[in-house]
């Protein structure tokens, strides 16, 4: 029936389920980027870094955090560290990590990004690119690049033998959790009062503010929300890819391609193209593995040629 049937089904289902996992991360990250771009008109290049921070935050919550402080040793300044113990597992991290990283993001927005109001988006891109480099560099300096393993709670380990493949429980969990967050965010933006205000503020912030809504506060919260979703993705990714300072930088370029394919600023577009491109990558890994690294960019080029505003973008 299929030309490519001579590949064993284990390979198919293995790669497709991995593709769905990658797609989950693409969807979560491009969703946050879309929300931020729509409201702040900023291409948030720090998105990969906050995703990585989310993973690190989970790791700190599980293993404790070393707080560095300066000391005098024989008259010389040196760094010592105090260990702040913590043993909060992933269930805690899934809530606390997005919360902490979201607050960190809101501080960045209030202190730095806000100063770029009214400037070309390129300035926001440059600033967030620099921020990403700083965050990544600091963690690389402290933890190296080899990556730290992150253990999952017992319930999520193990898996099911479906006969044609072994499906790890954790993969099911990632797909379910990311779909819930994606659907929840879509619902909140497209179907609630708050979301209507957000969409209106994206279109005409000045008028929405003149109706009595605190738009600057809304912008800060939106940035916080987008960043928190990335941190959530980072926590989910920690057991799969290990906690590594470069994990975000590796992913973010593909995610930007996903955003462009879905259409800048389109919520639904970023979710659907996120999952879709994850699956397409999986298929490519079966049929022609050599192309799996570039297939997303090839699709991006084709989409840009045929629909410059993206699959779900509104032509403006």
């Amino acid at each position: 029936m299929f030309q490519f049937m001579h590949y064993p089904p284990q390979l198919w289902f293995g790669q497709l389920s991995l593709g769905l996992i990658n797609g989950s991360f693409y969807a979560l990250l491009s969703l946050g980027l879309a929300v931020i771009f729509g409201m702040l008109n900023i291409v948030n290049f720090a998105h990969g870094a906050v995703y990585m921070l989310g993973a690190f935050c989970a790791w700190f919550l599980l293993n404790g955090f070393d707080i560095p402080y300066p000391v005098l040793v024989h008259g010389h300044l040196a760094l010592a560290s105090a260990h702040l113990p913590s043993h909060l597992n992933m269930w805690w991290a899934l809530f606390l990590s997005p919360l902490f990283v979201g607050i960190f993001g809101m501080i960045l927005q209030r202190t730095m990004l806000r100063r770029l109001d009214g400037l070309e988006p390129i300035y926001g891109l440059l600033l967030t690119f620099g921020l990403a480099a700083i965050i990544q560099g600091l963690l690389q300096n402290a933890y190296g690049s080899s990556g730290e393993p992150y253990d999952i709670p017992g319930v999520l380990s193990g898996g099911h033998n479906l006969g044609f493949m072994f499906l790890p429980n954790y993969r099911i969990f990632v797909v379910v959790a990311s779909s819930i967050v994606c659907f929840g965010t879509w619902f909140a933006i497209e179907r609630t009062r708050f979301g209507a205000t957000l969409r209106a503020a994206t279109e005409n912030p000045k008028l929405v503010q003149a109706f009595g809504i605190n738009v600057p506060l809304m912008i800060t919260l939106t940035y916080g929300l987008g960043v928190a979703i990335a941190a959530f993705a980072g926590v989910l990714a920690a057991p799969i890819y290990q906690v590594n300072p470069t994990m975000g930088a590796d992913l973010i370029v593909v995610v930007f391609a996903v955003v462009v394919i879905g259409g800048m600023g389109s919520i639904l577009g970023s979710i659907i193209s996120g999952y879709m491109l994850g699956l397409i990558e999986g298929v490519t890994k079966v049929i022609y593995p050599q192309a799996s690294g570039v297939i997303v960019f090839v699709i991006m080029a084709v989409v840009l040629l045929m629909r410059p505003s993206g699959l779900f973008g509104r032509a403006s």
């Binding site: 209507a196 279109e203 009595g212």
Partner: peptide, 14 residues
């Protein structure tokens, strides 16, 4: 607002 329906437009100002 183009991205809001009539009801949402109507209910927008608090």
């Amino acid at each position: 607002f183009a991205s809001l329906n009539v009801r949402e437009n109507l209910m927008l100002p608090p």
